[in-house]
C-alpha cells in the first residue's frame, strides 16, 4: 500500500494552513513581540484549542455543554500534580496525563449523553458545578481555595508559545479532518435527527461518547498548558462556571458548527476580554450577553456567517466582467 494524499484535503487549503502555522511560529523573532503580546497570543492559542474542541461536541454533534470547565480544571490540576511530584519529568508528559484523565472523566459522563438538547445542557451545568465544589473541597489534590503553585521557570513560560501553537495547529487540523470525513457526516446526521440516524445504522451513543471523550481530552491538555503558563492555579477559577461559559461564547460568537468559527471567536473573545477588563470591566458580561442575543437572532453562524455575507458582494464585485461599462 502506498501513501496517498487524502482526497478530503484540498492541497491549497493544506498549503495555506502550513504557511499560517509557520508564520505564527516565526512571528516572535520576526516581529519582536513584546512580552505583553507574546502572553496574549499564547493565551489565544490555548483558548482557540479549547473552543475548537468544544465545537466538536457543541457544533458538530449539536450537544451544547455548559460544563467543559470540569475537564479544563481536571487537566490543569492533574498536570500540576504530576509536575510537582516529578519536577524532572518533561512537561508535555504531564499535560498528556492531564488530557487523559480529563478524557476519562468525559467518558464517565456517558449517562448524561442519553439526554438531548436542553436536558443535556442543564445536566452539564450540574456536573460542572458539582465538580467545582468537590475539587475545591478536595484540598489534598487541588490545594483547596489557596490553590497550587507549579515549578515552572520563565524560560518554559516563554517556550509555551510554541507548545500552544502546536496544540492549536493539531486541533485545528483535526477539526478540519473530522468535518470533512465520514465521521463528521455521521455527527451532523446525529445533530439533525438522532432517531433517523439510528434508523440508517449510526450509533449515536458510540459517537457521542467518542467525541465527548476527545473534546474533553483536548480541553484537559489546554488546561495543563494553562496551569504551566500561570504557574499558579486555583480550583474556583479553573473549574469556574465562567470558564465553561467562555467556551460556549467563543464558539457561538465565531460560528458554531463551522470549522474555523471557533478560531475567529476565541481570538475576538481574548482580545475583547483583555480590552474590556482593562477599560470597562463593568460592561464585560453584558456585552457578551448582547453579542449572544444578536448572533442568535440575526446571524446564527456568528462572525463566520457575517464574513460570508460581506464577502459575497465583494466577490461579485471582483468577478464582474472586465469590460463592464463604468457608470
Amino acid at each position: 500500500m502506498s501513501l496517498r494524499w487524502p482526497e478530503i484535503v484540498p492541497p491549497r487549503a493544506a498549503l495555506a494552513f502550513a504557511a499560517g502555522v509557520v508564520a505564527l511560529a516565526v512571528a516572535p523573532w520576526v516581529l519582536g513581540l513584546s512580552p505583553y503580546s507574546h502572553n496574549l497570543v499564547t493565551l489565544a492559542f490555548l483558548m482557540v484549542s479549547g473552543a475548537l474542541a468544544w465545537n466538536w461536541m457543541g457544533g458538530f454533534v449539536g450537544q451544547v455543554s455548559f460544563g467543559h470547565a470540569a475537564m479544563f480544571g481536571l487537566g490543569g490540576f492533574v498536570a500540576a500534580r504530576v509536575l510537582l511530584a516529578a519536577p524532572e519529568l518533561p512537561a508535555p508528559l504531564a499535560w498528556i496525563a492531564g488530557g487523559l484523565v480529563a478524557g476519562l472523566f468525559a467518558l464517565g459522563a456517558h449517562p448524561t449523553l442519553r439526554l438531548r438538547g436542553p436536558y443535556f445542557s442543564i445536566a452539564t451545568i450540574g456536573v460542572g458545578e458539582a465538580a467545582r465544589l468537590v475539587f475545591t473541597y478536595w484540598e489534598d489534590f487541588t490545594g483547596g481555595s489557596s490553590g497550587l503553585s507549579l515549578p515552572i521557570d520563565s524560560d518554559m513560560k516563554y517556550r509555551l508559545y510554541w507548545w500552544g501553537l502546536g496544540l492549536m495547529a493539531l486541533v485545528a487540523a483535526a477539526s478540519f479532518l473530522i468535518r470533512r470525513s465520514t465521521l463528521g457526516l455521521q455527527l451532523l446526521a446525529i445533530k439533525a435527527d438522532v432517531d433517523a440516524a439510528a434508523d440508517v445504522g449510526v450509533s449515536a451513543t458510540f459517537y457521542q461518547d467518542l467525541v465527548f471523550c476527545l473534546s474533553g481530552a483536548v480541553v484537559g491538555v489546554s488546561g495543563g498548558l494553562w496551569a504551566s503558563y500561570f504557574s499558579f492555579i486555583e480550583p474556583n477559577d479553573m473549574f469556574g462556571f465562567d470558564r465553561s461559559i467562555g467556551f460556549v461564547l467563543m464558539t457561538v460568537i465565531g460560528g458554531v458548527g463551522t470549522v474555523f468559527g471557533p478560531v475567529l471567536g476565541a481570538i475576538v473573545f481574548v482580545l475583547l476580554r483583555q480590552f474590556l477588563l482593562a477599560s470597562y470591566p463593568q460592561l464585560y458580561l453584558g456585552l457578551y450577553g448582547l453579542l449572544l442575543i444578536f448572533i442568535i437572532l440575526f446571524e446564527p453562524l456568528g462572525l463566520t456567517g457575517l464574513l460570508l455575507r460581506l464577502s459575497r458582494p465583494l466577490r461579485r464585485w471582483a468577478d464582474r466582467p472586465a469590460a463592464a461599462p463604468s457608470p
Binding site: V64, P118, Y288, G289
Partner: peptide, 15 residues
C-alpha cells in the same frame, strides 16, 4: 426548543 433558545436566554441573563 433547541440550543438557540437556550443561548438566547442565557444572553438575556448575562445582560
Amino acid at each position: 426548543g433547541g440550543p438557540a433558545s437556550l443561548l438566547l436566554l442565557f444572553g438575556v441573563w448575562l445582560v
